[in-house]
Design a binder for these strands. Sequence first.
RNA 1: GUGGUUGUAGCUCAGCUGGUUAGAGCGCUAGAUUGUGGUUCUAGAGGUCGCCGGUUCGAAACCGGUCUUCCACCCCA
Length: 461
Amino acid sequence: MAQKPSIPKGTRDFSPSEVQKRTYIFDIVKKHFQTFGFQPIETPSFENSETLMGKYGDEGDRLIFKILNSGDFLNKVDDATYTTKNASLLTPKISEKALRYDLTVPFARYVVMHQNDIDFPFKRYQIQPVWRADRPQKGRFREFYQCDADVVGSQSLLQEVELVQLYDVVFTSLGLTGSTIKLNNRKVLAGIAEVIGAGDRLVDFTVALDKLDKIGEEKVKQEMMAKGISEAAIEKASPLFSLSGSNAEQLRALQHMLSASETGTKGVEELSFIVKSIEALGLQSARLAIDVTLARGLNYYTGAIFEVSAPEGVRMGSIGGGGRYDDLTGIFGLKDVSGVGISFGLDRIYLVMEELGLFPEAIDRSLEVLCINFGETEAMAALKLVTSLRAAGIKADLYPSAAKMQKQMKYANNRNVPFVILLGEKELADGSCVLKNMANGDQKMIKLSKADVIVQEITSA
RNA sequence: GUGGUUGUAGCUCAGCUGGUUAGAGCGCUAGAUUGUGGUUCUAGAGGUCGCCGGUUCGAAACCGGUCUUCCACCCCA
């Protein structure tokens, strides 16, 4: 007896209607990337391990899927290394390649390798799957698509402004109105840490601060304390916990608080520029909100930080994020190339849209008309008709065998086909066919010579 | 990586403190209906109870392991 097949945890199969819906999202996103002047690139599914390892922190290294070397790979390991059973020592000896963990690091590698062929500023977009050996949860998979748009080679803050616009346009097009684009700046965070005297604890400070909306003020303070941040420093930072009001009000408060910090002041200026520009330009449906508690990975961001949260009432983590990184290509030896990018969490966007019922109803209409098969001679005539309908761009098909009519009709019904054509002995005799509207049951007799009338009926429905 | 949770028919799930041949709804197949689907009625097919091992006269149920699902943490899209 064959074993029941299965797929690895955290991976998914996509059925026809799911693929259709995903394609719908992809197409909208791509369309807007292109209207903003971004160009597509693709990179390999797997990279050399050195390219990826150490770029995402220890946690990241653990989550990278390593690919075992081919051949008799254990033979090449010396006994000493082998017997230590130390994964971090042994892994580099038996694995030289790893699956892509995100699109940003491979992109940095790409820019460095192709720097002579690229005209800067380079605006590229990339939509490809990435893999993480994470433990799956809702909206969290081990294989998922990332969808990034980055600009490298320009320090202008106008790029940040445009990326906010891009988020707005894409989410509006998808019908995901009412999403909030949260904005922060790494320099502001650094400034705060500096002013309160916890400059050396920047990462611990921001990681804790990032959890404010989730675990509350008290627990954040506890966590900061546990990480060794002094009580006095936490006391100085406490105005942050109750920072509220409009973007302008928050900016004023930050400006005041950070006046002693050069970095912090610079950060506030950058935030102000983006906020004012967006106010002047206007957004279609999204809201831009300053959120000083927004931290994100922190690993390579140096300026603006973005994060998009799903519309109110949907339980889902962020559906997009990004930021400014001043020295991403530096790790591969190319200095002074500033970049800024955003990412769309397509799998999560899909889940949110499904939950809110935002996909167009006709999206999985894979067939617009089905011809019933009445037998050899009728089928020939039907196929001729189907051919001309297809030439006119109609998704048409002929049932392949002269099965019972009930069966054929049921098939049409299950496939959600809006029209059925009946071309049997009677119709063939006077050169016509019957076009049946499956939604209301109406039937029309139409001459076979007038295929354009049939096309008209189908497309206008 | 830590703690918890889930797994029974194609799908959604019942199945009592262990006790005959494991059930329902939906779906599927066939018929009522020899040129008409979505409604109705009738009949039928379909399950080594996730997998491996253990306890027991007897396990879907109890125990151990493993895989999977979902959740919280870590981290993140």
